[in-house]
Write a protein that binds this DNA or RNA. Sequence first.
DNA 1: TAGATTGTTAATCGATTAACAATC
DNA 2: TAGATTGTTAATCGATTAACAATC
Lengths: 215, 215
Amino acid sequence: MNTKRSEVSAAVVRRLPRYYRCLVHLEQQGVVKTSSKELARIMDLTASQIRQDLNCFGGFGQQGYGYSVAALKSEIADILSLTSPRKMIQLGAGNLGKAIAGSVDFSSSGFELLAIFDTNEWIVGSEIKDFPVLSLDVLKDFCHEHHPVAASLCVPIEGAKVLLPLLVELGIRSFLNFSHYDIDYDNVAVENVYIADSVMTLSYKTAALEEEESL
Amino acid sequence: MNTKRSEVSAAVVRRLPRYYRCLVHLEQQGVVKTSSKELARIMDLTASQIRQDLNCFGGFGQQGYGYSVAALKSEIADILSLTSPRKMIQLGAGNLGKAIAGSVDFSSSGFELLAIFDTNEWIVGSEIKDFPVLSLDVLKDFCHEHHPVAASLCVPIEGAKVLLPLLVELGIRSFLNFSHYDIDYDNVAVENVYIADSVMTLSYKTAALEEEESL
DNA sequence: TAGATTGTTAATCGATTAACAATC
DNA sequence: TAGATTGTTAATCGATTAACAATC
């Protein structure tokens, strides 16, 4: 890789998972070779932008030919670090926790989900899609034994506030944060997910559409 | 409003829900008055950018004083069109559908969820947080009677592909799309939610952090 | 070789930041 | 009035697009 990951602009990083998805899709369809022009058409970007983005990390194409779908997919998987999955735990097995553990394929997105922790004794001992639901009481022992480094936070904001110092103390360095709690630690990676923001954005877009149509 | 919503850049639109959240938070804490400087500090933006963003829509402040929290919150609610909620249905009552209907407060985000549709006869007739789960068989009649204009798509990609022409035919114009299906219709508002992209982005950020620490 | 498409440099465009007059 | 902070214009910065030489 030419550049340090931390030096790449957020705009480029946000497009990487889209490139990856697109390449997985092409590969599934049996497409062997592609080009910046074709990717641009599929993803509704410019060919120039795609070449610029990819060349932040290296020259993955062949002049006059284009890109090998399999090779480019593999390169982007490496860049996204999907090839060295990190051990993850989830906090919260309520509605949201069930949905996330049940519908997100962590193993194809760079993580290995080990277990889900909750305080509700009715569900402790059960499983969500093969992942054991454990009591919060055993969190500490579990972490000392298995050394997870990432956490999916599917708890309410108050729960997150309480859990965070403990999780950091136990060695968790990456947070997929659904809790709306503002995580502010040094040397910690955080990805905040605000689904309500997407709903409000849809509301705005809908109003924009109506505004256009009423003219 | 000075400007048509459709003329405002995506960068600004993406920040509007954050402004709104921040103002709701301040109001809950009993804060009456704020300033671009204070908002900038809380949200980690520049005061300049906040004033630029807000002035896309109008002059909501008072020179020498700042902004009234309640008034600004109300203005942004109007801009996001949260004040005229649109009737919404949800497709899918599986894990994801349960989580979304169960944990997202649509009514404070511009929509009124009427009902959830599914094909699974085991759950048809039940309720998810007071929302009735109905059979897909009654979708057409329901839409003719209640005229929903928006849909939350919590179904797999194949389901979305089949449902979309029908939903558009029934008058649905806005889609909150969790399905990964690429919705491509004219005069339709779409907000795609790709949680897996956030997971991959966290994987990248984690790798970036490790890269920094190993130097 | 001729054609195609990359990698990369240069030009353009848009978004962010800075500055400041207006004014509460 | 003096101080503060907006709204807005100008300057800067960064991201996107265009162009083209390199080369497969």
